[in-house]
Amino acid sequence: MKINCIAIEDEPLALKKIKEFIEQVDFLNLLEGFDNAIDAVGFLKRNSVDLIFLDIRMKKLSGIQFLESLQIKPKVIITSAYDEYALKGYELDVADYLLKPFTFERFIKSVDKVYNQLNTSQNDNSNEYIFVKTEYRIEKILIKDILYIQGMKDYLQIHITDRKIMTLQTFKNVLEILPRADFQRVHNSYIVSISKIENIERNRIRIGSDLIPISDSYKVKFYGILKERKILI
């Protein structure tokens, strides 16, 4: 499994060091390095990443402000010379906190932790069904029957083979319980079951009579996953 990552660090020597460390780890794929968080925000609107190495004290937009602004949060490893931000970082659910100067051994321990988390989440969730809360009851849904999931303001609409179910849930909660081997987010408003895709044309997925858009922010990761699993040739 390859982990696509970016590094955000305003000190040139520190950014160079992180890049060199990343290049020595075969499961890390550095997409880009940034000397400020604002450019990284623009990049993330067009690309999907698995991991961000993030400095805290930066001009214009701090690492904490950057984290708080993200709607889609990949794994984050904070790299900082200041330990007073550690608590705030963990409140924002960062994967690890590397205190500068850190060694390559400490770096490896940190990225290994992220690798195991991502690998476990991809291989977990082998249940054949889930239970979903609706307005008046709890519905049992067979995972093999789910076609796709659509976001509708505060609700999710789960499209299954014979009906639609509305539930007050978040995409994050749903993705945590669905098997990641088959379900992928392709748009801010859509998760699809890969096995139910009939065709893809002009970045639109056809499932039954429905067309589901693939947004620019998810396109790279989605097609990359299809290639990685050797189901796109």
Rank of each mutant, 00 (worst) to 15 (best):
V94W: 07
Y97W: 13
L98H: 02
L98V: 05
L99G: 15
F102N: 11
T103R: 07
F104H: 13
F104E: 14
R106T: 14
F107M: 13
D112N: 14
K113F: 13
Y115K: 11
N116Q: 15
L118I: 09
N123C: 06
N125H: 08
N127G: 13
I130K: 10
F131V: 06
F131I: 07
K133R: 12
T134I: 09
T134W: 01
T134S: 15
E135I: 15
E135K: 15
K144A: 13
D145G: 11
Q150Y: 05
G151V: 00
Y155L: 15
Y155M: 08
L156K: 00
H159R: 04
D162R: 04
I165T: 06
T167P: 12
L168H: 04
L168V: 01
Q169P: 02
Q169D: 15
T170R: 05
K172M: 03
N173Y: 11
L175M: 13
E176F: 07
I177A: 03
P179Y: 01
P179S: 04
A181K: 14
F183K: 04
V186T: 05
S189R: 01
Y190P: 02
I191N: 03
S193Y: 00
S195Y: 05
S195F: 11
E198K: 07
I200H: 08
I200W: 05
R202Y: 13
I207C: 04
I207Y: 06
S209A: 11
S209Y: 14
L211S: 08
P213W: 05
